[in-house]
């Protein structure tokens, strides 16, 4: 099984649709970082609407993926966290450190673009893709 990563302009989109084992979480991390490198995307929106168990391992991999993407000069935005998952994470004493989140996929994409404008990245505003 492999989690598909879609490209929408200069943003990558992916979502975790099922309860997946640890090795698949690790695979997703590597393929996301690989795709970022290959495509030069400004960031990734990772939707977790249908994910309802985030334990300390998953939380750590998500945090680390965001940190790694940032080191590469990109961003990860996590969207759609189930409120009960948020409750569980906070009760466990775990938060997704340094991760940008948004309520919906749409808001995630907007946040990603907004962050990019803030940091004044030239690649986002070079106009080559924006003319249409």
């Amino acid at each position: 099984m492999r989690i598909p990563i879609l490209r929408l302009g200069n943003v990558l989109l992916t979502s975790i649709q099922a309860d997946i084992p640890d090795d698949l979480v690790q695979d997703l991390q590597s393929s996301l970082l690989g795709q970022l490198e290959r495509t030069g995307a400004i960031g990734v929106v990772l939707d977790i609407t249908s994910l309802d168990v985030i334990d300390s391992y998953m939380a750590r991999v998500l945090s680390e993926t965001a940190a790694m993407a940032r080191l590469m000069g990109s961003e990860v935005v996590i969207t759609g966290m189930n409120p009960m998952v948020a409750v569980t994470l906070i009760e466990m004493g775990r938060s997704l450190e340094q991760i940008t989140t948004a309520l919906t996929l749409e808001q995630g994409v907007e946040k990603l673009k907004a962050r990019l404008n803030e940091t004044g990245s030239s690649s986002a505003g070079d106009g080559a893709h924006d003319r249409s």
């Binding site: 309860d19 997946i20 084992p21 640890d22 309802d52 168990v53 985030i54 334990d55 189930n82 009960m84 998952v85 409750v87 569980t88 009760e91 466990m92």
Partner: peptide, 27 residues
Amino acid sequence: IVLARQTGRDWACRLGFRMVDQIRLAT
């Protein structure tokens, strides 16, 4: 690990535990 957390959750669901408790237990 996935099977264990899903099974625990299924049992909690059968017992009528609230969704948030099912998720706490599975986690």
